[in-house]
Design a protein around this nucleic acid. Structure first.
Lengths: 352, 352
DNA sequence: GTCGGCGCTGTAAACGATTACAAGAACGAT
DNA sequence: ATCGTTCTTGTAATCGTTTACAGCGCCGAC
């Protein structure tokens, strides 16, 4: 009645359980043995039990991907890439949402010790010593998709935000925009700090000063809109001066850096949120204000106008991270590798 | 050196393994016993092995969610909802992408017999007898998020597409649009057939005839653009007649149903794809053409103009599906339930 | 003909937890 | 003081697989 076990198959085939197991795992056996076992398996509809197998071989053939927010399209891209690699290698993927708190990330990493998965790819939003420690002590292999110090002694795959920022700023310069504002996510996050430093460096290298900088409360669309409101109130805006200026920008605006003709956002969701606020003020993208996002997610081509975005290689990072994880599962002695994926710029209609 | 087992804890605490297990599972024990065990656990950093536990108790505390395409924002919404419910109940979520082929869905359901998860929520894109059969025979509880015949004898949670279509058509009528085109996904899919029937019924009920109907190759953004190209070539378009008409619509267009002033798309991704093609032809949404999507995903509020969309309750469907699954895991004797979630219309700027 | 070697098969011991069952302790009632 | 009840604890079986080890043919070589 209940599911047949390997013992039932053995009985039906008139052989030992060991032989059944061997046939099922492709170990050497005579043609007749294979034949009998396969017939019995077929007849009973036997399917090996993953739980028992996991216990014995010490592996679950599952890998975990932990991201902060599945609603962020960049994680969807990454998830796709990871899925592809790990499923090709015969693993299932467990996707976990950690949320924005580092304590939940730590709890997750600690929990890996239960052995429900053979490895972890984690893209931590916030990093502290506890997290580093938990990763270093973790029983199962961990790959970090993001930036943690080399001292953590863990495989990492990260983006090159500074280079990406440089691409963005240079592209704006090349198209004649110099009055640039920057909307970042929380600076106490890993991507937030990287973007902040990258933007500062890129601007310095180009001899520019930011017209304005705003820190959104998180990396979501809603936060992008809020940041847009904050950014656009009281600033003199637009190439044509058709915007706030016509409606009378505050006097202080000039002092804060002058007119605004371009916005760089720390990710695509923020960029799209800002574009909505620009539209609400009847400012035209890119004519009045150019907008550049980061991540080059699917949203960048779906939004309107299509968003020029810095491709930080999220798909490649996902792929490489998954590959590193698989490699480490096979060989845990190898020295940790630190891969940096280089950015490219996907130019679309949101910049002139 | 390697991970401590319950036997190690028992030795360190000077008690039996049974006692350790009991303390860990909160079964009655004296204060001193609890004390000793907890100290030993603390000292050794013991964490129970999920694999061994799974084998013994016959449960993995994992649930699987199978969707066709993680890139579709409606699945992201659903996934969030499912995640929330199942993780609150102490389960992990395994997200699997089946792709568009029914054979892969069947393989997935069959594979559940391995017992790597305690239940499955599947949102099948295509359904055939094999799939129904595999679901009926499945060893672990299955809940279908979608439409399968009652004869399958399985819990289902589905949307009410016809009602949703009615909401869309009525909204267009109420805003003075009668020349409606419909862009569907593949009609050999579950949502595709439901939408097709719903649209036909809604139009009949309103005494209207479709100006045009296009079937996209799948439910993606790219397919939406292709469908947009097909739809818009040679049709006379727009309330103001400022569009194709000015550039000379083909003579045949009138015969095919006359001018076009509204498009209903089978989901948000298709709608957004179409909006891009409208924009490429300098047609203004909603002034020239109104657009309505379905799913009311995050993309609907992120795109521009924000998309009026039929909310088919994807979050609620996810939640209810997860709840049904948890309930069935607790009690597999209960008769199958078939829940229908009612739609609402989220009116935004893409309709007048 | 015997023996070594090789290759297949079966027996039984793991893997690390839970839990049925039995045994012992403690305690109150008679 | 004895007995029965209750509560706690320990012993050992069990979940379904994999795999070390031993046994047993069979073959070729001497």
């Amino acid at each position: 009645m209940s599911r047949p076990t390997i013992a039932g198959v053995a009985r039906a085939a008139g052989v030992s359980v060991a032989s059944v197991s061997r046939v099922l795992n492709g170990l050497p056996a005579t043609g007749e043995m294979v034949e009998r076992v396969q017939r019995a398996v077929e007849e009973l509809g036997y399917v090996p039990d993953a739980r028992a197998r996991s216990l014995k071989v010490g592996r679950t053939f599952q890998l975990t991907l932990a991201v902060a927010d599945v609603g962020n399209p960049v994680y969807v891209t990454m998830m796709r890439a990871v899925e592809e690699v790990v499923s090709a290698a015969g693993y299932r993927l467990v996707v976990t949402t950690t949320g924005p708190d580092v304590v939940d990330e730590v709890a997750l990493v600690r929990g890996m010790a239960r052995g429900y998965a053979d490895g972890l790819v984690i893209s931590p939003l916030r990093v502290d010593d506890d997290l580093i420690k938990s990763i270093r002590e973790c029983d199962v292999p961990v790959v970090v998709a993001g930036n943690v110090p080399a001292s953590a002694g863990v495989d990492t795959v990260r983006a090159n935000s500074p280079k990406g920022m440089l691409l963005a700023v240079e592209h704006l310069l090349a198209t004649g925009r110099k009055r640039i504002a920057f909307v970042n996510g929380p600076v106490d996050t890993v991507p937030g700090t990287a973007r902040a430093k990258g933007f500062a460096d890129a601007m310095k290298a180009s001899g520019l000063r930011a017209v304005a900088e705003v820190e959104a409360v998180d990396f979501t669309f809603a936060a992008g809109r809020e940041a847009g409101v904050e950014l656009l109130s009281g600033l003199d805006i637009g190439v044509r001066g058709s915007g706030a200026e016509a409606r009378g920008g505050r006097p202080g605006a000039e002092a804060r850096g002058g007119r605004l003709d371009a916005v760089i956002a720390a990710n695509d969701l923020l960029a799209v949120g800002i574009m909505h606020e620009l539209a609400a003020r009847e400012l035209v993208v890119p004519d009045d204000v150019a907008v550049i996002g980061m991540d080059d997610s699917e949203l960048a081509e779906q939004c309107f106008p299509p968003l020029t975005s810095v491709n930080l290689g999220s798909a490649e990072r996902g792929r490489r991270a998954a590959e590193l994880l698989l490699a480490r599962i096979d060989d845990d002695t190898r020295a940790p590798r630190r891969i940096v994926v280089q950015p490219t710029l996907s130019v679309r209609k949101s910049t002139p």
